[in-house]
Nucleic acid binder design. Structure first.
Lengths: 131, 131
DNA sequence: CAGTATCCCGTCGGATACTG
DNA sequence: CAGTATCCGACGGGATACTG
């Protein structure tokens, strides 16, 4: 998804409370992007080394580093470096990070339920505009 | 959020079932971006005209059009044009669109609960790296 | 009022190369 | 192996102008 930039002039959506809308957007900004979802998913099973996450997610070296830094900064992921040679760094979800899995699964469940509906709707839409 | 581009070489995260991971990413791609969240939020209360959504969301003319087109294509929003002069176009959430509010609120609830924790974590992180 | 088209700049993110 | 730095192409998205 596109990076979310918060700006002054905009109002709050009505489905949720007045001001916390900002918080929601901010959080979506953090957890809504592809690599974050993949990384959290990868780490859901337990601690994992950098390269393991790299392979599992398919992210580029660069993006995974940035993503993990972001998650670490926000307290969602714990980073543990072992001063061995070669270095070994393990990442794991914090309690906070784990708690994120539940809402993500809420989305996941919705996605699974409605994927077909969306696909057929899209097909119909495409067909209609090419009449 | 950043647009999500699905690519071949990548595996599924473990927190969720094997293949539907793609569906989740695809859905996040659609519903995870700023303007979609804003638009769905704006329409949650009921049908609304284009310009009303425009003002409420703070989106640019262009982006709102694109966003609404996307939502319409996916069957989340219904578009009704009245052939008056000047034209009047109303948008409203479909049943499918409404069902999306629930998972979004799941995220919203998480965001509200953990916003503080994330902020302090970030502050601590910033402080630590500037020691 | 709603929608489309064009321009254009910022930034996201992949590839590559270099360090500890 | 893990992380940082640099380069650079691609595209997201705002501003603007023009139609029905």
């Amino acid at each position: 998804m596109k990076r979310i930039k918060l700006r002054p002039g905009m109002a709050r959506p009505g489905w949720d409370d007045p001001e916390d809308c900002r918080a929601v957007l901010k959080v979506l900004d953090r957890i809504g992007d592809k690599w974050t979802v993949m990384a959290v998913g990868a780490l859901a099973d337990g601690p994992m080394r950098f390269n393991a996450v790299l392979r599992l997610t398919g992210a580029s070296h660069r993006m995974l580093t940035l993503t993990l830094r972001g998650l670490e900064a926000e307290g969602l992921v714990k980073r543990t470096a072992y001063a061995t040679i070669p270095p070994k760094v393990e990442y794991e979800l914090t309690r906070l990070g784990h708690s994120l899995i539940e809402p993500l699964q809420s989305i996941a469940a919705w996605a699974k339920r409605n994927r077909r509906a969306m696909e057929t709707a899209r097909a119909k839409f495409e067909a209609a505009k090419a009449e």
